[in-house]
Design a protein around this nucleic acid. Structure first.
Lengths: 343, 343
DNA sequence: TAGTAATACTAAAACGTTTTAGCAATACCA
DNA sequence: TGGTATTGCTAAAACGTTTTAGTATTACTA
């Protein structure tokens, strides 16, 4: 069952495909097609439920009305929620989304970029992995619209939308200090990427500003690609090794979840014996006993911002002066709950 | 920056585009292209990093190597996890995934199908909404490969992969009975679709089989499209209205989450004062205090099964006898935790 | 040595659009 | 009345592939 094409309409209307194309693309006036013919074509088109073949159109115009969304892991609550926002926002502009997960693996990310490229996506939303900067710059020099998200490359002048991760971590840590915790540890991911670096920096800066002596042994950096059990084991090892630790900041949502599980398995009472702050809000954090204080990202605003930037790029007419890449840094919200209170 | 095309290779190799196409599609032998020429073309192609333009190929062959994934809500843990599995499995066969969320809205679903159709996706994975049966049948009569997931239409003979929802609900309810709960309520979604119908049927059947008198007032069916607060309010109203209720089965993951929140806000002690079983596993269920008993779906197996079926269809050669639609029904696992124990 | 078969390749059409360049007919102007 | 503008449309090329239907050359057969 073939779809119906512009030719079918042309035949029925007794005009050329050219005319049909003009009319259906709203160029009737501009191309001086008479009202009569115009109306007739419109009528036939709706009667036949004509939908242009996007492949043919894409081949000719180079535009597919598709954007590529590269995330770390689509199954992760943060990215899944982001994907939903992106879907909705993109839809408003007639775009569809092809997604892919990198699992923080540079080779996988490169593969995804490659595939998306020869699928001719119009623009990219990318959660970059380490060492993806060259590829990003390549895309830029090819004038491909792209927006980085969650993290960026300081030496690459690109659009990006990220959280003020430094502030998030700083506020979380400050909060712990103000709550009376003295020996505060951080469990984070061994990554030099901006989001992780800033979270660690915010943490150490807060300690320093509040005259809490900083001790390297209070920092645990774990590889990204562990399974849940290994995370749990590593966290347990760490927390038992750190003498006198009385609070811990988990720098990602999944670390926080693993942390809760581990600490409970150790029999420590969250809040009382050990203060705890997580990253990203989550149903678990909200409903855990005690509920878990966390740094919450404004995911809807992030997604909206990303798509807005991307659309601006996509609608940018070649030849006109390009607007410079924009860096959007959104503010986190510290949601204070029971896990950071000794009472 | 244009990509390099088959013509560029042809020019460099001093042969025709046809020859290049044959070689790169592995038809060198079949089309009797000499080893020499074949090798030369291969070499040039890899040197130039040639990647076929998928639009052009798709236009010509009618195959886009893209599948459409229509879920209820990509932000929901269950569907997000499924999306990840589908992504991975599809990738093994060289397919990419376009996704869309219906929000259980038939009009949105129809819109998605329409868009995916004229984007020429090769196959569909669909979480159907109510009244989408006509569209499904239309796709089928157009010989489009498709697999329904999570729910299906009893009167439509299509591929589908679903949970044994009846058993899931039956086991959950039986478990509550065996734990000594006597007045067991269910909170579900007001939907006549199979997954919800079967969960309700499993619930009532279990009550009957265990001689628990069934009372219509113990069933609450809520509309899908409420926000969290409204869910909470409705659940609260329901639970306070039902005299003597001592256990409740929440028939979806988000209802379970809302249920936990609500019951706690009412000051009832989960397990002791009210038994609770949820649907789909979730970090919250695992780590809540008390932990929440739930009916868990084998998401990895579901995703794998779906993609396997779809690939079989996609690789099916026209003309050969079609294998009949397969119905895969996977078994749930009842994960027993603290919320269904009075101790 | 003519006829057939096999080998090694290619020209051109096709997929369904968009877009450029242009043509015929009518209208307008002096 | 001859020339220019304007109107209303279309032919054909192009996008980058795949595929059909060849052709030219060489090799084999009787």
């Amino acid at each position: 069952m073939k779809g119906i094409s512009i030719k079918d309409i042309a035949k029925q209307a007794g005009v050329s495909p050219t005319t049909v194309s003009f009319v259906l693309n709203g160029k009737a006036k501009e191309k001086r097609i008479s009202e009569q013919v115009s109306k007739k074509i419109q009528k036939i088109a709706t009667r036949l439920k004509y939908k242009p073949n996007q492949l043919a159109r894409g081949l000719r115009t180079g535009k597919t009305k598709t954007i590529g969304l590269i995330v770390e892991d689509i199954a992760n609550n943060f990215f899944a929620t982001l994907a939903k926002v992106v879907e909705d926002e993109a839809d408003k502009h007639g775009y569809k989304v092809l997604y892919g997960s990198t699992e923080d693996n540079t080779e996988k990310a490169k593969g995804l970029l490659e595939v998306l490229k020869y699928r001719q996506v119009d623009g990219y939303i990318i959660t970059p992995t380490k060492n993806l900067d060259k590829e990003i710059e390549l895309l830029q020099s090819a004038a491909k619209p792209l927006v980085l998200v969650d993290r960026y490359f300081p030496h690459v002048n690109s659009h990006y939308v990220v959280l003020n991760n430094y502030k998030g971590a700083y506020d979380a840590t400050t909060h712990l200090v103000k709550q009376g915790y003295k020996k505060i540890a951080i469990v984070t991911i061994a990554s030099d990427q901006t989001q992780m670096k800033e979270r660690l920096d915010g943490f150490t800066a807060a300690l320093k500003d509040h005259k809490i002596p900083f001790n390297k042994s209070f920092v645990k950096r774990l590889p990204f690609d562990l399974d849940r059990e290994s995370f749990n084991n590593e966290i347990k090892k760490f927390l038992t090794a750190v003498k006198g630790v009385d609070a811990v900041f988990f720098a990602t949502n999944y670390l926080g979840i693993a942390g809760i599980e581990t600490i409970r398995s150790m029999g420590w009472e969250i809040g009382k014996e050990i203060g705890l702050v997580g990253f990203d809000d989550h149903d678990l954090f909200r409903l855990h006993s005690p509920s878990i204080t966390c740094v919450s990202q404004p995911i809807a605003a992030i997604g909206k911002s990303i798509v807005d930037l991307l659309m601006k790029e996509l609608n940018h007419v070649a030849g006109t002066p390009a607007s410079p890449p924009q860096q959007v840094i959104l503010e986190p919200e510290l949601i204070i709950r029971g896990s950071s209170s000794r009472k």
